[in-house]
Design a protein around this nucleic acid. Structure first.
Length: 273
DNA sequence: TTAAGTGTTGCTCT
DNA sequence: AAGAGCAACACTTA
């Protein structure tokens, strides 16, 4: 689940719940998720500190400590944050738990152990070292800059949207919705896209991500809260397309499944020029 | 019961 | 350069 909209809501959740409280205890539920840091080292670095700020880049969430260091979090394929009081309500999949001085706890919940947590001195350097491109919601990104990013790409448009080194934050799920709204087949090659198509693709990116954040991405029932004109509530092989009632189809790309409407998202057979 | 599938990234090979 | 295939993991579904 955790793509840009989900992680953005986790960031807001962390901001609203967990700042400015001294961390009295640190419990690490699994060392598998630790990125280049040992359990004792991380625990020692966090204990006695406070979280002061939170930022996000793509699917990465970063929490700034009062000593200037950053706790970095990536959720992998599953996961969320949980702020709670009673340890009896603890999830069995808590991989990192911070115990605050007000009796509350913040847990990094990650059922499948594909998430990663690390500690970094410098947030910008970390983002750079991860090879992440511009965040898909970066205010400085406009359709001109987006077109520039896509210029010279030779691959499929869905692959380009999911390429974190190009544009950070979009994964398999939201790229399907974006391409549905832009009316583009996932295997459309980027080089065939004209200026107008790129511009409408960019607008679809911003529209989809904004709506998903607003509708509460990251919570279980998000799909039910998205507009029924969206693909995601109907994202199932053979389900009727919300726009034309044609059957939703799938195609394998990069070892995962892309869902699309074969009628609304025609494979552009036209080769430019 | 067993096998395949699932929103992630990262690696190898072509 | 870009894409296919696979591995990591734990759980659900067919």
């Amino acid at each position: 689940m955790p793509e840009l909209p989900d992680v953005e809501n986790y960031r807001r959740y962390l901001n609203a719940t967990s700042l400015h409280r001294t961390i009295e205890g640190v419990k690490i539920g699994s060392t598998k998720i630790l990125r280049r840091i040992s359990e004792p080292h991380l625990a020692r670095a966090l204990r006695g500190r406070r979280l002061e700020r939170a930022r996000r880049h793509g699917k990465h969430l970063l929490a700034g400590l009062d000593d200037g260091a950053w706790l970095t979090m990536h959720f992998g394929m599953t996961g969320r944050l949980n702020y709670f009081r009673r340890l009896a309500n603890d999830s069995p999949y808590d991989r990192l738990r911070l115990d605050f001085d007000n009796g509350y706890h913040l847990a990094f919940v990650n059922r499948r152990l594909l998430g990663r947590i690390g500690l970094e001195k410098d947030a910008d350097a970390f983002i750079e070292s991860q090879g992440l491109g511009v965040d898909a919601m970066d205010p400085s990104l406009d359709d001109k800059a987006f077109a520039k990013l896509m210029a010279g790409r030779r691959g499929h448009v869905k692959s380009a949207l999911m390429d974190q080194s190009l544009l950070a934050g979009i994964g398999n799920i939201y790229s399907d919705e974006i391409l549905f709204q832009a009316g583009l087949h996932p295997k459309t090659s980027v080089q065939t896209l004209e200026e107008a198509s790129l511009s409408s693709l960019f607008r679809a990116i911003r529209r989809v991500l904004t709506v998903a954040i607003k509708r509460g991405a990251g919570s279980e029932e998000l799909v039910g809260r998205l507009p029924s004109s969206y693909l995601l509530p109907h994202r199932e092989d053979g389900a009727p397309c919300p726009r034309c009632c044609c059957r939703i189809a799938t195609v394998k790309m990069q070892n995962r499944t892309a869902y699309y409407c074969p009628r609304c998202q025609r494979e552009s057979a036209t080769v430019a020029e």
